Simulated assay, not measured.
Amino acid sequence: MRHFCIWLGKFVLLALCLIQLCWAQDTLLVNKQQFTLDDFVTFGGKTIKQVKVGWESYGKLNEDKSNVILITHFFSGNSHAAGKYSQDDAKPGYWDSIIGPDKAIDTNHYFVISVDSLVNLGVHDPHVITTGPASINPETGKPYGLTFPVVTIRDFVNVQKAVLESLGISKLHAVMGASMGSMQALEWATAYPDWVARMISVIGVGQADAWTTLTLEQWAMPIRLDKHWNHGDYYQRQIPVDGLTASLMMITQQAMHPDYINAANPQHWPLEAAPLNDINQSHQVVNWLKNAAQARANIMDANHLLYLVRANQLFIAGHHDKLEEAMKRVKAKSLLLPSHNDLLLMPYMAKQVHQALLAAGKSSQYAEINGPMGHLNGVVGIAQHSSTIAAFLAAKDSL
């Protein structure tokens, strides 16, 4: 019996090693690449010189360049949608569960590409390449600060279009994005309808309504109130880290659902000793959220957050007509996947787009993502709709 146990132990160990080896071989390894535009004219008519953005891709571009799927990222995200930069990375890109060989977005068939946005929040992340207020203005040799032009979701799309055109791409098999990425996906379908055969909007919205605009303004307020913000001119001074941390705390909480936060903090008790005995002390759950926000603040920039807020506040699909009129220009088949318990971009916002598309005689599907995390279901729970996404991508072109 002893010899059998030793043999079994060795067998299990060998099996685990083989499994780990297979996982390592299946890991999608990616590289960040850089794209530069000498001059970029914004939707508002301002010129930005030497625009630089990062991009990464998965899979291979086919001969006629017809297998392209563009992934547009969310507010605090970047172009790292799948895979790892090295085998040692702690975790892969945010949608690795659906992007890769034999997954819903199958990189055996599709060339998947994603681009860092202008004014990307993670400007100090070594894997992010972006141009924004923290960048050096080539005309002054100093950071732009608030002299950087206001940018819009259309500008994010136009930079992506320039990247694609540099690769000889002139049509998208599909465009798909979550949250702020959903805005970009829908903007693609309305601004450049002849490019887009399929559009997938995850935890999405067609316009920033009054409620959403006020919510976004709350994200900006702590930064503007930080004593070190100095009207955006802080790059050679003390940075407004307290304001940025407070903003990130608010964003993170609103992107979650009470069920998740309560479950993640089972030790919470209203009458905790520290806050009971000292007004300067906080509850455990407050420290939990603050510590997470502080860790993220290290790679982010306060002014970039303000510019992202404004881009989202200015959003309406098409950047011109009413939403209903903009949907008439869409030629793509559309799939809308809101989160059932989203408290940030609530399901009614996706339903508004879906109904406007149907009213315009367009092809639109609607299904909800379930899970405990609210808005973040669209990131961590997307795999539950793998079959829906795969079937949608495989459907015949509408163009």
Rank of each mutant, 00 (worst) to 15 (best):
residue 246 A to G: 01
residue 322 K to H: 12
residue 154 R to N: 13
residue 216 L to G: 09
residue 23 W to G: 03
residue 271 L to I: 07
residue 10 K to I: 14
residue 228 H to A: 15
residue 165 E to G: 10
residue 349 M to G: 06
residue 105 I to A: 04
residue 369 I to V: 05
residue 322 K to Y: 07
residue 286 V to G: 04
residue 251 I to F: 07
residue 232 G to R: 06
residue 87 Q to W: 07
residue 215 T to E: 14
residue 130 T to A: 03
residue 359 A to D: 11
residue 71 I to L: 02
residue 371 G to N: 09
residue 321 D to K: 08
residue 53 V to L: 08
residue 73 H to L: 02
residue 273 A to S: 12
residue 279 I to Q: 10
residue 112 V to W: 00
residue 267 Q to F: 09
residue 290 K to W: 11
residue 176 M to I: 11
residue 233 D to L: 06
residue 90 A to W: 08
residue 310 R to P: 12
residue 310 R to L: 07
residue 190 T to I: 08
residue 47 T to W: 13
residue 330 V to K: 08
residue 202 V to Q: 12
residue 188 W to T: 01
residue 288 W to F: 11
residue 278 D to H: 05
residue 282 S to C: 13
residue 162 A to I: 03
residue 333 K to G: 15
residue 121 L to P: 06
residue 303 N to Q: 00
residue 55 W to F: 06
residue 42 T to A: 09
residue 101 P to S: 11
residue 129 I to C: 03
residue 321 D to S: 11
residue 81 A to Q: 01
residue 395 A to H: 01
residue 60 K to R: 15
residue 211 W to F: 14
residue 45 G to L: 08
residue 370 N to I: 00
residue 218 Q to A: 15
residue 66 S to E: 13
residue 84 K to D: 09
residue 208 A to W: 05
residue 160 Q to I: 03
residue 363 S to R: 03
residue 356 A to W: 06
residue 253 Q to H: 04
residue 50 Q to H: 11
residue 68 V to K: 13
residue 104 A to K: 10
residue 302 A to H: 05
residue 68 V to H: 06
residue 305 L to W: 03
residue 111 F to E: 00
residue 21 L to I: 09
residue 266 P to R: 09
residue 296 R to C: 15
residue 261 I to V: 12
residue 268 H to S: 04
residue 36 T to W: 03
residue 226 D to V: 01
residue 385 H to E: 14
residue 209 D to T: 02
residue 176 M to R: 01
residue 122 G to S: 11
residue 264 A to C: 12
residue 78 N to Y: 11
residue 145 G to D: 15
residue 302 A to I: 01
residue 48 I to W: 09
residue 71 I to S: 08
residue 15 A to K: 01
residue 346 M to D: 01
residue 355 Q to G: 14
residue 324 E to P: 07
residue 167 L to Q: 07
residue 93 G to S: 08
residue 71 I to K: 00
residue 13 L to V: 05
residue 49 K to W: 06
residue 391 A to K: 13
residue 345 L to G: 02
residue 264 A to G: 11
residue 360 A to S: 10
residue 129 I to D: 08
residue 281 Q to D: 10
residue 97 S to Q: 10
residue 146 L to Q: 14
residue 197 A to K: 14
residue 16 L to D: 10
residue 31 N to C: 00
residue 230 N to G: 11
residue 53 V to C: 03
residue 339 S to T: 02
residue 319 H to L: 11
residue 393 L to D: 12
residue 161 K to M: 07
residue 392 F to Y: 09
residue 16 L to W: 07
residue 211 W to E: 15
